[in-house]
Every structure is written in structure tokens, then in C-alpha cells.
Amino acid sequence: MNALLIRDLRLAVRAGGGFGLGLSFFLILVALIPFGVGPETELLARIAPGILWVGALLSCLLSLDRIFALDYEDGSLDLLATAPLPLEAVVAVKALVHWLTTGVPLTLAAPVLGVLLNLPWPGHLWLMASLALGTPALSMIGAFGAALTVGLKRGGLLLSLLVLPLYVPTLIFGAEVARRGAAGMALETPLLVLAGVSLATLALLPFAAAAVLRVNLR
């Protein structure tokens, strides 16, 4: 498992790995919002948690189709499926790599971009906390979607259509934590539910994704 983790991380940071693309997209997206809704700081501060969450979610979406497609094209996925590593573990590692290369940078960048949107102070912390809890689920759900569409030519658009509805619960609870955090309200309930959703996703979806991969490889 470690070997796969190291290989994929190495691939991600080498030339053509696409590392940082999601992050740049996030930055651009957040920079565009004020052009769309106007420069009033009050309005921006109020919508900042939601904008940042939706932006992070979309940036996450951007790199999903690479999770399995590259390995499928060059035959590695066939070979991994016949290797001693269970396919469930392969899926989990792939999702982990996606999170490390996308979710973690997004989480770290979000509070900085929050400054651009006049996010009120304690909100930065809760925004980071909610993203740190929520983005693993986004990566895992995305890996499931990528497994569904791995054999398809131009599956990217279909992937978004399949994955976005699955993102709804995570988005609702994650953005709720960030919003309540920014407003200084009590946020234990959404925080706990968000953690629960993420943990359940991480525990169960690798099995569904591996089953789907097996179907797609035959």
C-alpha cells in the first residue's frame, strides 16, 4: 500500500501530474466572485463561507477523472487488480492521494482566500476545520464516481453529473459549520454530523468503488 501511495504522490508532483491545478482554479474562482456579485464587503463577508465551500468542491471535482483513468489507459489498473493488494485498498489509497494533493492544499488555502472575501475572523478556523473534515469525503465519493466512469471515453462530464448530487450532504453540513463559525453561533451539531458523514463514506464507499472497478475491468 505504501508503495502505491508513494508512486502516486510522486506521479502527482512530477511534470504533467496536474498538482496545483485545482488550487489555481480555486483562487481564480474566488477572485471572480466579487466581479459577479459586486464589491460590497458586507455582502461578500456574508456569502464567503458558502462561496469558499462551493469553490473547494468544484476544484476537487476538476481532478477526479484522473484518479483511475491514467492507470486504466496504460494497463496498470489491470495489473493492480491481479496484484496481492485488494482492490478496496487500491481505491482507498487512490482517494487518499487525491485528498493529499487536492483536499489538503485547498483546506490550507481557504482561510487565505477568506481574507479576500472579508470572512470575519473566527470563521477562518472553522472554515479550515470543516474543510479538513469534509474534503476526505469529497475525495472518496469522487473516487467512486471515477470508478463508475473509468471505461468511458469523455466520461468527465458524466462524472460531474453523477458525483455532484452525492456531494449535497457534505456540502450542506460543511458550509453550515463554516457559516455558523463565521457568525459565532453554536456549531456542534453540524460539525458532528459532518464528521459522521465523512467517516461513514470512508468506511463504506471503498467497497462499492472496488465492486464497480471490477465490473469495469472485465
Binding site: 510522486r10 506521479l11 489507459e73 494497463g75 491481479t82
Partner: peptide, 18 residues
């Protein structure tokens, strides 16, 4: 079973040894 298909499963961005 060790399977070798048409595709070699080689990552072009990694060295031979890697």
C-alpha cells in the same frame, strides 16, 4: 498468476528503476 497484457502498465514520468 502474473499477467502481462498489451499495455505494460509503465508510468512514463517515472524512471525504469522506480
Amino acid at each position: 498468476v502474473a499477467y502481462a497484457s498489451h499495455a505494460d502498465g509503465i508510468k512514463t514520468q517515472l524512471s525504469v528503476r522506480e
